[in-house]
Every structure is written in structure tokens, then in C-alpha cells.
Design a protein around this nucleic acid. Structure first.
Length: 158
DNA sequence: GCCAACGTTGGC
DNA sequence: GCCAACGTTGGC
């Protein structure tokens, strides 16, 4: 899952959300709102399950890369920020009766000893087919078990 | 339903 | 700030 760790103002609201921000939330838990892409939405709504591990990726920043781990604590449910006209993520086409956008709740697990940069991830043949490397530009994406394990080993965790 | 124009993402 | 890759929009 990607989030932007540096301040950026969208419609008057700062969209900054880093792994440290997640850790500092109450219960180190947050809903993951604001995803407005159908492919990512489908993953949030249909695929992610409680207990799934999440690689927390820092994007659109000076040092893009994987910063650490989170875990899913609530599976997909409607993203209420789409219902609020005052909210930057408002979507007039979504309402309670037939929600268009979904989110999950995630909880901080731990930071990696270092950020695994995108440049480094691109250097490893084992990650050649990883969506993050091959495709980019998708804020929620699946990770294969072999890729996940390899990334943990890069982080010096195994 | 096609597809050109336009907008967004996000690394560099 | 540039721009490639994609997604969305809307005319026809």
C-alpha cells in the first residue's frame, strides 16, 4: 500500500501519511481512505482479509521505498470520505445506499531497520515481475509470497 | 462501442 | 519541471 510521507495540500487538506503517522494513530490503527482507482478499489473490497500483511510504501517523496510493515485489522467497507461534500475525497457518484469506494483498516506492525528504496528493489531479478517494479502507478497492489519474503530478507529481518 | 483528448500518478 | 504510462471522459 502506498502513501505519501511528505506534506502535500489537496483541496485545503494535507494528504501526508507516513508509517510514523500510522504508528502514532490511536491504537496505531487507521482506515485507509481516499483510494479512487477501480483496480485498487477491487483489491480493498474483495481481496484483503484480516491478518494480511501489508508492505507500507512511501511514494511521491525524496526517498521512495518500502518503509515497514502493517497488517489488515478490518476488511473492506465503504469509504465514508466519499460521502462528505466538504471532504477532499468527496465523490458525488458515491452514497451510502450504493457505495462506489471502499477502504480497509490497517495497524502498524514495525518499521524496517532501513527504507528499501525503489531503486534497490529494481535491481533484484527476484522482483522483476513485482507490480511495484513492473507497473508502478497503483496505490494498492498484490505482492507474491516469494516477493514478500525476499523483501523481508533485504530489510535484514530474516 | 470506439477512440482522441485530457487528467493523474509518481519517478527522476 | 518533465514526461511516460495509464485511466477517465465524452463526442460521435
Amino acid at each position: 500500500m502506498k502513501a505519501e510521507p511528505e506534506s502535500r495540500i489537496v483541496k485545503g487538506v494535507d494528504v501526508k501519511f507516513s508509517i510514523d503517522d500510522l504508528r502514532e494513530m490511536e491504537g496505531a490503527t487507521s482506515h485507509w481512505d481516499g483510494v479512487r482507482n477501480y483496480e485498487a478499489r477491487n483489491i480493498l473490497r474483495d481481496k484483503m482479509q484480516v491478518g494480511d500483511q501489508v508492505l507500507f510504501y512511501h511514494s511521491n517523496c525524496k526517498a521512495p521505498g518500502i518503509a515497514g510493515l502493517a497488517t489488515v485489522v478490518r476488511s473492506g467497507y465503504p469509504d465514508h470520505t466519499a460521502f462528505d461534500p466538504a471532504h477532499p475525497y468527496f465523490d458525488p457518484k458515491s452514497d451510502c445506499a450504493s457505495p462506489k469506494w471502499f477502504m480497509v483498516d490497517v495497524r502498524f506492525v514495525r518499521k524496517f531497520p532501513r527504507v528499501i528504496s525503489l531503486a534497490e528493489l529494481k535491481q533484484h531479478d527476484q522482483l522483476r515481475d513485482m507490480a511495484l517494479v513492473k507497473r508502478g502507478r497503483l496505490s494498492v497492489q498484490p505482492v507474491r509470497k516469494a516477493e514478500y519474503d525476499f523483501i523481508l530478507s533485504l530489510a535484514g529481518e530474516q
